Simulated scan of single mutants.
Amino acid sequence: MNLVFWAAMVAFLADQASKYIVIHSMELWRVLSIDVLPPLLNLRYGENHGINFGIGGDAVNAWVWIGLALLVCGWVLWWVRRTRMSRLGLVCAGLLVGGAMGNVIDRVLYGYVLDFLNMSCCGIRNPYSFNVADIFIFAGAIGLVIVTPDGRAVRKH
């Protein structure tokens, strides 16, 4: 479980540090948009009151999303404790939990999740933004699916 904790801490701190630097130090909240490597990478200020792509932002209170995120984190931690997992599986679980907790802290502090990364390509303009926590959540979840394709952890022999 130490590996889960440290992976979660790295994900959480990387997310919160990136938000602080981009939103507050670079004042993205004020300028709203900074082109970094257009169109591939841009910084676009966003307040996500829902889940992915703002779905459920108007219909559901932030505290419901906080509760759901905590429930998912609790389930992942319970599952990891009951299942023999590879080191990669433990890291993936930690990334997912740390990313989710980064977004939970945003909801507690601001009432929404701070988003700022925007990527577009090949003539297709992406109107949505995301954050570093979202990357860790996605990577952790996909990693767990790959590491445990049949619902059981890969065992080292």
Rank of each mutant, 00 (worst) to 15 (best):
C73L: 05
I21Y: 13
K19V: 04
I51G: 10
N118V: 00
R44M: 11
A14Q: 00
D134G: 11
T83C: 04
P149M: 08
D115R: 10
V36W: 03
R87H: 05
I66C: 12
D35Y: 09
L70P: 04
F12D: 00
A14V: 03
L3E: 06
M9V: 04
L95A: 11
I135C: 14
R84Y: 03
A7T: 06
H157C: 02
F53L: 11
I23G: 03
A7F: 01
L37R: 01
I146N: 03
I137K: 15
A133S: 13
W29G: 00
M9N: 01
S129V: 10
I66A: 08
G57E: 11
V91D: 05
V104C: 04
G67T: 14
V10M: 04
G56V: 09
A93C: 14
N131H: 09
L37G: 01
G143E: 08
D134N: 10
G57K: 12
S25E: 02
L90A: 13
G67C: 15
L144P: 11
M1E: 10
M119V: 13
N48Q: 13
Y45W: 15
W79A: 12
D115W: 10
L40M: 08
G111H: 09
E27K: 13
A69Y: 11
M101Y: 02
F53M: 11
D106P: 03
G143A: 09
G99Y: 07
C121S: 10
Y128L: 11
W6E: 05
L40H: 10
S86I: 03
I55C: 14
M1K: 04
L37H: 01
G99D: 07
S25G: 00
N61M: 15
A100S: 15
G102H: 04
T83D: 07
D150I: 03
F5C: 02
